[in-house]
Design a protein around this nucleic acid. Structure first.
Lengths: 210, 210
DNA sequence: CTGACGATACAGACCTGTCTGTTCATATGG
DNA sequence: CCATATGAACAGACAGGTCTGTATCGTCAG
C-alpha cells in the first residue's frame, strides 16, 4: 500500500492531497462539479473526509484547486507544443490549433473545464471563477504574443479573434464532424491572418475581395 | 399547442404554466439551473408546487421547457433581424452579428443558456441536452443557408466557422472590451468570407496573401 | 359537481461541514 | 535502546439544511 521510494507520502506528505485532487478532478470534469458530492470524492479517492477538509478547507476551495490544476496542465501542454514548433510563428499557431482540434475531437471530450465551471457558478466572486477568468485572459495574452510575430496590423485584434475561435471550438464539439475541428480552426486562422495583413478596412462594405 | 385566446386563463388555461415557465427561465438563467430549486421557482412565481408538477412532470422537464422557450425566443429575434436585413446576404449576416454582439455585450449577459445547461448536465440522454444540441445544429443550418448566398466555394465550411465564432462569442464575454464583440465578429466574418471565395488552399503554407 | 389551483406537511434522499476517537509512523528525550 | 510526544490519516456518526417529488385538504369558478 505505501508508495513512493523516498517515503514522502507519510507525515505531511502531499500524497493524500494529490490523490484527492486527482480523483476530484476526474469526477468534476466527467459529471459536473455540482453533481459530485464530497462524499463521492472521498469514497473514490479512498481517503477520509477529514483529510479532504484538512487539505481543502471548503468544497469551493477544492473546485478552485481543480481549475488551477487544469490550468497548469493546459499551459504545460501548450508549452510543450511551443517547444516543438516555436521557431516560426505561423507553424507554432498551426501546431497549437492542431493540438486543440485533436483535444476537442476526443471521444470523451466534455468541454473546457474553465468554461464549464464558470457556467455552473454565476456568482462573480466565486473563487473558481477567478481562476477561470485568469485562464481566459492568459490565453488571449499568449495568443497576442504569437500574433505580434505574425506581421499583422493589429495583433491584439487577431488575438481576440483567435481566442473567440478557440473558445468556440471548446463548446462546439457537438456540431463537428469527425476530425473537422483542426482543419476548421487552421483555415479560419489563416483567413484571419491574411485579412490582418491588409490595412484594416471599414467593416460595412463587402469590398469584393482583392 | 395554442390554447385558445378567449377565456384562456382559468380552467385549463396556460396562464399559470406561462408564469411558472417565465419565472423559472429568469431564475435558471441568472443563477444556474442546479442552483435553483423548485421551491424557489414556486415562491417567486406565486403558484403552488402542485401546479408546477402538474404542468411539468419533473424538474428535468421544466429545464427542457426552459431551453425550448429560449430556443423559440432566439429564433424569433433572429427572424426579426432577417426580416429587416434579408435582402443582401452579407448585410443580413452583419446584422445578425451586430445583434449577437450587442447581446453578449449587455451588462447582465450570462452566456448562451443552451451552452450553460449543457455544461451543467453532462448526461447525454438528459432531455435538456437534446434541445441544446438541436439548437446548435439549427444555428449551423441557418448559417449555411446564408453562406450559400455568399458566393463562397464551400458554404458548409463557412457555416461551421461562423458557428464556432458565434459560440465563441457567447462564452467569451469576459475577455471583451466594451462593445468589442460586434466589430470583432464582423471583421472575422469578412475575413472568412474573403478567404472562402478564393479556391481552397492547403492549410500548411502561408501563401503570403494575395 | 368537476377540475384547476393554493397551501402545506411530509418522505426520503442528499448535501456540506464538524466532531469524536483510533491507528500508526516518525521525531525526540532520556 | 526504549518511551513518549506529535500529528497526519482513517472511520464513522452526526448536525442542520436543501433537494425533488408526493399526499392531503380547502377554495372557487364554470
Amino acid at each position: 500500500m505505501s508508495k513512493i521510494a523516498t517515503n514522502a507520502a507519510v507525515h505531511g506528505g502531499t500524497d493524500v492531497r494529490d490523490r484527492i485532487l486527482e480523483t476530484a478532478s476526474e469526477l468534476f470534469y466527467r459529471q459536473g462539479v455540482r453533481a459530485v458530492g464530497v462524499d463521492l470524492v472521498v469514497e473514490k479517492a479512498g481517503v477520509a473526509k477529514t483529510s479532504l477538509y484538512r487539505h481543502f478547507g471548503t468544497k469551493d476551495d477544492l473546485i478552485a484547486a481543480f481549475l488551477e490544476r487544469e490550468d497548469q496542465d493546459f499551459w504545460g501542454q501548450w508549452d510543450g507544443v511551443t517547444a516543438r514548433h516555436g521557431a516560426d510563428a505561423k507553424a507554432a499557431l498551426d501546431a497549437h490549433l492542431g493540438w486543440i482540434g485533436e483535444r476537442v475531437g476526443r471521444p470523451n471530450y466534455r468541454g473546457c473545464p474553465q468554461i464549464n465551471v464558470a457556467a455552473e457558478f454565476p456568482e462573480a466572486d466565486h473563487p473558481a471563477r477567478k481562476v477561470a477568468e485568469a485562464h481566459k485572459r492568459e490565453m488571449r495574452r499568449r495568443l497576442k504574443v504569437i500574433a505580434e510575430r505574425l506581421d499583422v496590423t493589429n495583433p491584439d485584434e487577431l488575438a481576440g479573434q483567435l481566442s473567440v475561435l478557440i473558445n468556440g471550438a471548446f463548446v462546439s464539439s457537438q456540431i463537428f464532424e469527425r476530425d473537422e475541428a483542426t482543419t476548421l480552426l487552421r483555415r479560419a486562422a489563416a483567413a484571419l491572418i491574411a485579412a490582418g495583413r491588409a490595412p484594416t478596412k471599414p467593416v460595412g462594405e463587402t469590398s469584393a475581395s482583392c
